[in-house]
Simulated scan of single mutants.
Amino acid sequence: MTMFRAALILGLLSAVGPFAIDMYLPAMPAIALDLGADVTAVQLTLTAYFVAFGVAQLFYGPWADQSGRKLPLYFGVCVFALATIGCALAPTIGWLVAFRALQGLGGAVLMVVPRAVIRDMHTGTEATKLMAMVMLVISVSPMLAPLAGSGLIVIGDWRLIFWALALAAVLSLILTATALPETLEPSKRVAINFRNLWKGGRTLFRDPIFMGLTFIGGFGFASFMVFVASAAFVYSGQFGLSPTGFSLAFAVNAIGFFSASQAAGPLGAKYGIPKVIYWAAIGFAAFSIGLYAVGLLGFATLPVIIAGLFLANACLGLIIPTTMVMALDPHGEIAGLASSLGGTLQMVTGGVMIAVTGVFFDGTALPMIAMIAMCAVFSLALTLMTLRAMTRLQG
């Protein structure tokens, strides 16, 4: 399978999870109104999805290492489809939160297995290039999903969005069955048992490089999730944007991330992946802290916020694919477990930061920007410590 074809297939599969997030963002104010819920309760639908999405990865990774990559995909996507139908029929915000959690439990497979497939096929800069190509396909989500959600709201209501996602899940099953080959040879499969899980988990938790790289990307990912959870209320409430206007503003911020991610492979090949992570983390922190300072001074207008987040997210686009690849590279024999553990830690970090933001969120941009800046500072601090540890080990 060529790299382009692999990127297209894995990207389309991986995009279903982000679509489940981005497509209903313009509808969050409408959901609050229709179900009689406050902002915090609606944000909980995202937190429930992220936490369940993260925890479930601990299950799919070892399963994929034992049975191969395709069987877990079939199971997870079926769970996702059924939960999505439940979301479409949810009568209260409580039921919507519950079905969103179940949706996350199923959708997690679409994060774990594609990353493990990439590790099956490539390592090093080649894996970074494939990861970046996959992220390019995924990039259609933050650019088109909110617009699609806005369009569906116009012709129906927010429930129609979840019916569309259920259809996407069915198409994912067809794609898995017809276009995705099995990439894990039977001779390389690892049986699921407590001894193997304990041994693999202990290896990963005791690896400071793996943990450091995971949380560098984790806090970077968390900053984007904070933006996702808050932006609809900030852009529509504070700045008065329509659902379509919000979708366009959201797309501009996301373009910075995914455009920069395409440079990760070439830059890693030319300068070395550690150097790319180092300078990207500095840029991410500088732009995020600078935007927060501007906000404290009262100059955080809509164009300033969009421009500042565009620059910060561009740096983030260099951090996430490179840290994913570097974290998995030394652990090819347990790539599924490593992918699932890394994804779990990152998703739970994102869910926790969304919950913390909700405590201080007042419908304005400043709490959102403050939490993004905090995530950037944590990511930079971990970058400095992790790269220093890598230098010691190599020396």
Results as ranks from 00 to 15, higher is better:
W163M: 13
L165P: 07
A168K: 04
A168T: 08
A168N: 07
L171C: 14
L171H: 10
S172P: 04
S172Y: 03
L173E: 05
L173K: 05
I174H: 08
L175E: 11
T176E: 08
A177I: 12
A179V: 08
L180Y: 10
L180S: 08
P181I: 09
E182N: 13
L184I: 14
S187Q: 13
S187K: 12
R189T: 15
V190P: 10
A191G: 13
A191S: 15
N193R: 13
N193M: 12
N193Q: 15
N196I: 14
K199V: 11
K199G: 15
K199Y: 14
G200V: 10
G201V: 11
L204G: 09
D207T: 15
I209G: 06
F210P: 06
F210N: 07
M211I: 14
G212R: 02
L213Q: 08
L213W: 07
T214Q: 06
F215A: 03
I216F: 03
G217C: 05
G218N: 04
F219M: 05
F219P: 01
F221P: 02
F221C: 05
A222C: 06
F224K: 02
F227E: 00
F227C: 01
V228I: 09
V228R: 00
S230F: 00
S230G: 04
A232V: 02
V234S: 00
F239K: 01
G240M: 01
G240D: 01
L241Q: 01
P243C: 06
P243D: 07
P243V: 02
T244V: 11
T244C: 04
T244M: 08
F246G: 00
S247C: 05
L248N: 02
L248C: 04
A249E: 01
N253L: 02
I255W: 09
F258D: 02
F258R: 03
A260H: 04
S261W: 04
Q262C: 10
A263I: 09
